[in-house]
């Protein structure tokens, strides 16, 4: 996983509430058995005018000029600004894979759906929750100022606006640690393998019916 410490990135404002993971990456692309290559199909139904299917040459497809990600001024954006309940719906991790593959490294919104929020951290993406009024203001600024950038510092847990204002955000200490170091959390968990074994052994005695069939 890519480590995340600082980011000075161009902001793209996606002004819709309840952006669901079906919209972030439509189901037909979930048939892939790979983890990469989803970026060209990020927001596929909003981004293109035709219907996308896996295997198409996306560079030849007609793009929707009205969709914000297609606007020239937002090309190369690394920070997505969203509205409430971002990432709701399906648990598909293909959604953060698609965002990351496209080049997004952080998402700022007033609220996120729980599973999506979790999935971001596993993929080097930082989801930041800011107050709805502040997000509203960032939207206005991002629309008004071309080339609007934000400076995110995970260490100090702040987002710095072009005017120099620093906005603080919360992040769990453990998640922050994993993200700043780019750590594989399976490896971290396996450090505690003896504790897991002991817990499991006790469980086998207390609730033997949980260990039926081929794992007695």
């Amino acid at each position: 996983m890519k480590a995340f410490r600082h980011l000075d990135g161009l902001v793209v404002p996606l002004d819709r509430p309840n952006v669901d993971t079906d919209a972030i990456i439509p189901k037909q692309f979930l048939k892939s058995i790979r983890r990469s290559g989803f970026g060209p199909n990020l927001f596929d139904e909003w981004r293109y005018l035709d219907h996308g299917e896996p295997g198409m040459d996306n560079s030849r497809r007609p793009v929707n000029p009205d969709f914000v990600l297609n606007e020239k001024r937002y090309q190369g954006a690394q920070i997505l600004l969203g509205r409430e309940n971002f990432g709701c719906g399906s648990s598909r991790e293909h959604a953060p894979w698609a965002l990351e593959d496209y080049g997004i490294r952080a998402i700022i919104a007033p609220s996120f759906a729980d599973i999506f929020y979790n999935n971001c951290f596993k993929n080097g993406l930082l989801p930041i929750v800011l107050d709805e009024k502040i997000v509203d203001r960032l939207f206005r600024e991002a629309f008004e100022e071309e080339g609007y950038r934000l400076l995110i510092d995970l260490d100090s847990q702040t987002v710095k606006t072009p005017s120099g204002e620093k906005l603080a955000f919360e992040v769990d200490a453990f998640r922050k640690h994993c993200l700043t170091e780019g750590l594989d959390d399976i490896g971290l968990t396996l450090i505690h393998r003896d504790e897991i074994r002991a817990f499991e052994a006790a469980r086998k005695i207390e609730q033997p019916w949980l260990f039926n069939g081929n794992d007695k």
């Binding site: 991790e93 953060p96 599973i115 979790n118 999935n119 959390d185 399976i186």
Partner: peptide, 8 residues
């Protein structure tokens, strides 16, 4: 859960 968690 997500796929990374499935693996975990």
């Amino acid at each position: 859960i997500g796929t990374s968690e499935v693996e975990h």
